[in-house]
Nucleic acid binder design. Structure first.
Length: 200
DNA sequence: GAGTTACG
DNA sequence: CACG
């Protein structure tokens, strides 16, 4: 549907219809079984409210040792492969031949928030980051490449895709609020965000 | 350091 | 009292 450009963030509203969204949830089920969600902490030892896991050749990890990409789930097994249905969202929205190495899977519950941050643990910032929203609505905040200054917020809903490339690739962004049970995609409520990245 | 809160 |  509509494509908005806000501070360099490319927002594809309603990119995925409800059938495609349901198919993605089905594709995620075996991944979450093989690589269960875990509750990370920041480098300073504070618990994050989001729960996460990954698919792909590497996954983003945060613990008291710091932020990095690892080839294995904390339990020791390699991350599951990224399903074709997810790779095809990357192709459609990025238009690139190169595929992402990593798909971070974040689960947001009723009170989960994600503070303003940059995605900067990747080797080459010329590749965009693609973010897929599934489930409950989320208030997304978009800032600037440096801390401070004005920000703009936008409600993201299930099926929306955000592409962070170019001037927005290193821009601060975060999630301020979840409208719990605003969507019926996940019967128990909550939001799943998929973040696709070229890491290496 | 992807956290939390105060404050205008 | 919601927002930045």
């Amino acid at each position: 549907m509509a494509r908005l450009l806000i501070r360099g963030f490319e927002v594809w509203k309603s990119h995925l219809d409800s059938k495609a969204q349901a198919a993605l949830i089905d594709a995620l089920r075996p991944i979450l079984k093989a690589a269960p969600l875990f509750n990370p902490s920041t480098a300073s030892g504070k618990k994050m409210s989001v729960r996460m896991t990954s698919a792909g050749s590497c996954g983003w990890i945060s613990d008291t040792s710091g932020y990095r990409y690892e080839p294995d789930h904390p339990a020791g097994r390699p991350w599951p492969a990224i399903p074709e249905s997810i790779l095809s969202i990357w192709r459609d929205t990025s238009g690139l031949d190169r595929l992402p190495d990593s798909c971070l899977i974040n689960y947001y519950g009723e009170d989960t928030k994600m503070g303003l941050h940059q995605d900067k643990d990747e080797a080459d910032f010329s590749w965009p980051v693609v973010s897929v929203s599934l489930g409950d609505d989320a208030l997304f905040r978009m800032g600037n490449p440096t801390r401070g200054g004005k920000t703009e917020s936008l409600w993201l809903s299930s099926g929306d895709v955000v592409v962070m490339g170019g001037e927005a690739r290193l821009s601060y962004h975060g999630i301020d609020r979840i409208r719990f049970k605003s969507s019926r995609l996940l019967p128990k409520g909550g939001r799943i965000n998929l973040t696709l990245r070229v890491v290496t």
